[in-house]
Design a protein around this nucleic acid. Structure first.
Lengths: 346, 346
DNA sequence: AAGCCTCATGTTATCGATATCGTCACGGTT
DNA sequence: AACCGTGACGATATCGATAACATGAGGCTT
């Protein structure tokens, strides 16, 4: 930066002002500086800037995995918003493990983010302590923790599945099963299952039928395996809810392979409203939670919280509930099961 | 850090040494320091460390989008490897736009990454200039640029589709179409299409049939629309290759909806070997490029290049070609078309 | 026993920017 | 004409760590 200053015939301070738009600089000086910058190919060093201004321009976000389109949507939503204020998102993946989450949080804190967004509301005690002690806004997402660390932008996973169950019961299904992950730590999946169980009780259904397969996040293939296991174990089951759209899709494809009509033989629903659910044949009944919008809302709240903190009036903990929508599609249609091949095969 | 030093009765320098494992510190001193750290809840500030050591611990990676499972797989592979050396990955998304890529590169350079991984081999002139001038290892991935900036870990998109075409021709298909994106900048998609065209010429097929729909990256729904358009435009077409597995899946589902047997009426192939392709019914013939492994290889090369640079012997540009594999599945099976419903509908 | 090496630790300078305060010139006010 | 406010810019201190060199205590060599 000193080089640029010399070349433009000004002080480093003026260069700094010119480059970040703050303070007052004469248009001519500004032009001279920008030209010097261009000639020298100078690039501002934000690490240094961060050190003196105590603002890193980072917001950390922790998600279980990048491969899950649902969470990457949320991250995209966050980026959409934070990008407008030139804030950069530092992404960390926790691999559905609280222990890894704790480790990632520690790494992240070393970068002094101005805000932290985490997925879920259950953490190791040390993780929780670190988040609290960080002294920056924290947003927990995708759940509705009973005792939030700070802010929350989420929804109740249990409630979504309860609603879905109510709909299925309304459509006349009584023997409804649930497919979930067998190993690993997936609090949101557990909540959904709890919602299923509550619904079974509330609607006085005969019994709960839960098939647990694979390691979270369970795959399409796990769904395929699970549906077979389900039909073998409880042949009387009429409908099944999968913990997410991936396994629901796998289950449907397996039914195709075996010639089990969906929803004729078995109605299948998922969670998440992946693109796949809309495009699948039959289209999959699911719950939409608007992941990208969830990310955007978290982003806006984060900007507000950061600004408030610098203004000396930290935001008191906010709880934003994002709406979920039941998307009823063909895979649970009660009669005239749309995907029947009768008469359509050439 | 001074507080920790005082509490442990040592100098800040010793604390620094203890914390980053470098240098020599007596076990007792180490223990005392770690205890002071724990008591004070002190967290190292890497921005400051980066400034003085001139090592940020960042590697930037630019991908078109997080939502594309293929690229996130590559990023995961990168993280797998870089994590072992406590290097953090800074992810930037370019939204399939060279202009955005240029902007993101500039932002990234302000963070002084120790290495940069970009997707693709075509960039704006300024982007290229910035990458060159950055003075750190650069790896271009997912393509085989003719004139690389520095290192390359990729494959020829054209060659993969040529291979796939050869296989289809081998299976007896002669009228083969290609479905691609209509708007937007997707160099890899264009390469694949070029491979398709070369194959049409080489095998002396009657003509090229290209359907372009939607904006890149094209969706499942785009694939569904495209296949309808295809059958209407060229009813004689026997097989179609889609620019990726997403639209291939959408096309297959649309065929189901319309009662067009796959592969009986139309064989359909994709690209990328998404999980969906394996689980779909019929399973989708595709090209696998091992995205995660690609990421791992890029990661290893990056570590090597970074180490070499610090050792004063920068690595001369390397070109790593990752193998692609044809995965032939049911969606292009020539006869006894597996997915026929004859006799399986109850 | 003198000399040397090694190990653990301390001192000082520095990384590259920005916060803060100071300076100076200029134009408007009374 | 003296005064004051404002705008443009400079000088200095500082952010929090680490590189590089210095120091001193012991153990080892011959």
């Amino acid at each position: 930066m000193a080089d640029v200053a010399r070349r433009a015939g000004v002080s480093a301070m003026t260069v700094s002002r010119a480059l970040k738009g703050t303070g007052t600089v004469t248009p001519e000086t500004q032009a001279r500086i920008l030209q010097a910058v261009a000639e020298l190919g100078y690039v501002l060093d934000k690490s240094a800037g961060a050190l003196s201004s105590k603002k890193t321009g980072f917001v950390s976000v922790l998600i279980p995995s990048l491969n899950n389109s649902t969470f990457s949507d949320t991250v995209h939503g966050l980026i959409d918003v934070l990008d407008t204020q030139a804030m950069q998102v530092l992404i960390g993946t926790t691999g559905y493990s609280r222990a890894r989450e704790e480790a990632v949080i520690e790494t992240m804190l070393q970068r002094r983010p101005e805000g932290i967004v985490v997925t879920g509301g259950r953490h190791t005690p040390r993780a929780r302590a670190m988040l609290t002690a960080a002294g920056v806004p924290v947003i927990e997402t995708w759940e509705q923790p009973a005792a939030p660390i700070d802010h929350v932008v989420g929804f109740s996973n249990a409630a979504t599945v309860e609603d879905l169950m109510a709909r299925l019961v309304d459509r006349g299904y009584r023997r409804i099963a649930f497919i979930e992950g067998g190993e690993g730590d997936d609090p949101r999946g557990e909540d959904r299952r709890a919602g299923y169980e509550r619904a079974v009780a509330r609607h006085r259904l005969e019994r709960t039928c839960v098939i647990a397969v694979g390691r979270v996040p369970i795959s399409m293939e796990d769904g395929a395996r699970a549906v077979v296991q389900l039909v073998e174990t409880w042949p009387e089951v009429e409908a099944v809810i999968c913990v997410s759209d991936g396994p629901a899709f796998g289950a449907i494809m397996e039914c195709h392979r075996r010639g089990w009509a969906v929803p004729g033989r078995l109605a299948i629903a998922g969670f998440g409203d992946f693109e796949l659910a809309r495009q699948c044949w039959p289209s999959i009944t699911t719950v939409s939670v608007g992941s990208r919008d969830l990310g955007r809302q978290a982003g806006s709240l984060m900007l507000e919280a950061i600004a408030a903190r610098y203004a000396g009036a930290p935001l008191s903990p906010r709880r934003v509930t994002v709406a979920h929508t039941l998307v009823e599609r063909d895979s649970t249609a009660r009669r005239a099961s749309p995907p029947t091949w009768a008469g359509r095969v050439a």
